[in-house]
Write a protein that binds this DNA or RNA. Structure first.
Lengths: 219, 219
DNA sequence: AGCACAGAACTGGACGGTCCAGTTCTGTTG
DNA sequence: CAACAGAACTGGACCGTCCAGTTCTGTGCT
């Protein structure tokens, strides 16, 4: 109600308190991603954010609350990064190229050390924090596949795809593209994240299979 | 050299020591799967196995050693369960039916609460125990896809499939079949494990896409 | 066979040392 | 004066060890 815009519980805010709060969040993100939930201790977070422990607890009531905050923020943040621009297929653009580009955009965002580590972290804590895992699922794969289904339905209406169930087609496309590199990086570590060239080959091969099954017959 | 068969360092063994050892391993498996590595304490394992803590440490030098033992055992055990019988395609059998049956066998083994929890556990500890994750990858997806590639190469030689790279085809088949239910169960918990009927529909849809891309043309 | 005995394995509990979440207290700074 | 830093502190958990006393198991002796 004052002259200043209130902090949106997100990014804005120049006050001393807001700055400290962000420092804590940044430090907590780093430490939690590195050491996991139980492996993290609050002293390290306070030290890394150059803030006293008292201040940490002034902003976040508990370790659990801080954890939920940063994981929740990262999931929605990452989800938004991928899906805020869904370019339509241009009139003179090749369908296969369009799908490959879409796949590559998705892959380059998800196959990032931070995002991969977030995934591992949330999966490892499914039992302790089932809600966080559900949110990650909704804002990640579920969201991607919902958008894909809409795109495919549109393409089918334009006669460019032959699709029974759009949701199933979206699932198939999504996993044809993502699964191999994702699972590899998941278990073999960040060093196993494929190069850009490998990702392109992977995307092209996946698109080829997808179009063989769902492409319209004249080709 | 005696009348009795020697213990194979694995299952056999009737002595008191061997019995206690198995009890410890069983209890440790349960507790580690339930609470994770850091969340598990050795007193609980000792209590659940009805054994003194001293005995636990007589059999396993540390918490870490015990963890490695049970996770390693589970991964090889589960891997062997899937892959010890790879039925050939019968002469009068339909290829699609054969592939669906193969997929279902795979799915019903992997989509088990214990195996899913093992996966979550190992993924959550990739940083702490990279070796365990690598072993799980080798004995799990990598092994499955190697066998698939061999099967597909054979089918291609018999003119039943049209395949460029067998390894890529195996990847595509494997993930077309597994990814959707696996990812769902991974993040949404054991309650999200699909029913047998859903798994069959999922397998049939995946096989349809696979054959559209890799099936031989006369059909 | 049955008995005695030695050594290993096990129990139950206590305990040292460490770690850590969260609190509190005493200055100090904006 | 309110927020903060710095540091100490509380209460509890937990790994790994130790010890005194008990049970098991295999071996040699009668």
């Amino acid at each position: 109600m004052g002259l200043e815009v209130n902090e949106q519980a997100d990014a804005e805010g120049d006050g001393r308190s807001a700055r400290k709060r962000r420092a804590i969040l940044d430090a907590a993100t780093e430490v939690f991603l590195k050491s996991g939930y139980l492996g993290t201790n609050m002293d390290e977070i306070a030290a890394l954010s150059a803030v006293s422990k008292q201040t940490v607890y002034k902003h976040f009531s508990s370790k659990e609350a801080l954890f939920i905050e940063i994981v929740g923020g990262m999931t929605t943040g990452a989800g938004d990064t991928v899906h805020n621009d869904v370019a339509q297929l241009g009139a003179d653009e090749d369908l296969a190229d369009y799908l490959v580009e879409y796949a590559l955009r998705q892959l380059t965002v998800v196959l990032t050390p931070r995002i991969m580590q977030l995934r591992r972290l949330v999966i490892g804590e499914v039992t302790r924090f089932p809600e966080l895992a559900r949110v990650l699922y909704e804002r990640g794969p579920a969201r991607a596949m919902k958008m894909l289904a809409a795109v495919f339905e549109n393409l089918a209406a334009r006669g460019l795809l032959t699709i029974g169930d759009p949701a199933t087609a979206a699932e198939h496309f999504n996993w044809l593209i993502m699964s191999a590199p994702l699972n590899q990086a998941m278990l073999l570590g960040d060093a196993a994240i494929p190069s850009a060239a490998e990702l392109r080959r992977n995307a092209e091969a996946g698109v080829r299979v997808f179009l063989a099954a769902y492409g319209s017959r004249q080709r």
